[in-house]
Design a protein around this nucleic acid. Structure first.
Lengths: 222, 222
DNA sequence: TTCCTTTTGTTGTAATTACAACAGAAATGT
DNA sequence: ACATTTCTGTTGTAATTACAACAAAAGGAA
């Protein structure tokens, strides 16, 4: 555990918390590190979640399966992100998503339930933590709305241009690498992969964008 | 202001806070009540938000306009809901949505910036408040994912059935009233209103649903 | 290298949707 | 009650998409 201290300390979750506090908190939370392999379900739809998951390393897809069997990718998470954080706030809520490990991943697991009852007033670092939780959820909230913007566009072309434009703004440059492969991007934008590939080609031939694998250049601005 | 105390006190935002604390907090926050009329913009895309808005009465649409001029309805808010809460957490973030008043609305406005700097440690009720903020954002987060599920369906029919099914579950009965009129529902599900009306008729004629105006009966379960 | 697997691109066709234009119903104001 | 406006439903057509089937490219393992 000790070798991950610096990684943990620099996460948004523990931002503003000293080393000694961190040690106490990890104990208080019953924190442990768990390894996941490709395809492992970290959170499964229907479960009740009382743990905070902090990704230390690796990649996690937050997904949903429709009633008709299609996959929806909600978001992709990496180191420093939390998985299903919104689910721990209310005890009686069932997870509405699946969280799947992509490749190998290393996750710090904290028993939020335990801490929130044990040391609500005792530990003063608890207020720092909950303030961090608020900030993290705010950011996620804004990202979910961005995703809604992306998938709310009418045509495949508009979805792609909006998505690429948003990515470009996030990277603060018109040359950037996207996090999804083609199938994942299609499942994120809720469109057919082959139709999306076709539209990407068209956008390239029209000179609006350029790309090679996951490296994209956006030559226009919305 | 005093006549709204009970309303304010019973909101999730001030849950667990005593009357005397509330009085002090409203002062500390520089709280005031603002009236909005139909079509008024409460939050405008691009603004920086440092105030907490609590709806005391009325109806507010959270919307976005696409680059191509179409309206996207993100969510509909009512009394006890907060508007753009995720935007106050980080000072340097611009609002990514518009919040529009539908009809008349009464909103309590709190200067979060002022409070968070002035009484971070001084007031102990601050920790209760921020814990409430976390819970509120969690709920909103889960609702945004539900919206993503609704609009991620492939066909108009699937969107309608998923939406109605989710509404039915929320109301815990298969007979319920929806919050949107037809045009709003279409803008929420990102589909054409007339095509949606046509599909609703078809679902009714097939016996899967029944409806009259905004009262719906879902006769199947997904 | 070669073989095999995975990922990405291309094309034709059937299904679905947006859009426009209009008709009917319901709500609103006078 | 009446006129007027807003909301909802219906229909035909052009545009867009999903899907299947396949081709090409990239990546890995022997």
């Amino acid at each position: 555990m000790e070798k991950y201290y610096s990684k943990i300390k620099n996460s948004p979750l523990f931002c503003g918390i000293t080393d000694e506090e961190l040690t106490r908190m990890l104990k208080c939370f019953g924190g442990y590190i768990k390894k996941y392999e490709d395809g492992d379900m970290i959170i499964r739809q229907g479960e009740t979640i009382s743990k905070i998951y902090l990704i230390l390393d690796g990649e996690v897809n937050v997904e949903k399966e429709t009633y008709w069997g299609r996959r929806i990718i909600i978001q992709k998470l990496y180191a420093n992100n939390n998985i299903g954080l919104a689910l721990v706030a209310s005890k009686n809520i069932e997870a509405n998503i699946n969280a799947l490990c992509v490749g190998h991943a290393l996750v710090l697991v904290l028993n939020y339930d335990k801490c929130s009852t044990m040391c609500k007033n005792a530990c003063n670092h608890h207020s720092v933590l909950i303030s961090n939780l608020f900030k993290i959820l705010s950011k996620e909230n804004i990202e979910l709305i961005e995703k809604i913007e992306n998938i709310s566009q009418k045509t495949i072309r508009d979805k792609l241009l909006t998505y690429l434009s948003n990515e470009s703004q996030k990277h603060r440059t018109n040359v950037f690498e996207i996090q999804f492969n083609r199938q994942e991007l299609a499942d994120y934008l809720n469109i057919d992969r082959s139709a999306m590939s076709f539209e990407l080609s068209k956008l390239k031939s029209e000179g609006l964008i350029n790309y090679k694998k996951n490296k994209f250049v956006l030559k226009i601005s919305l």
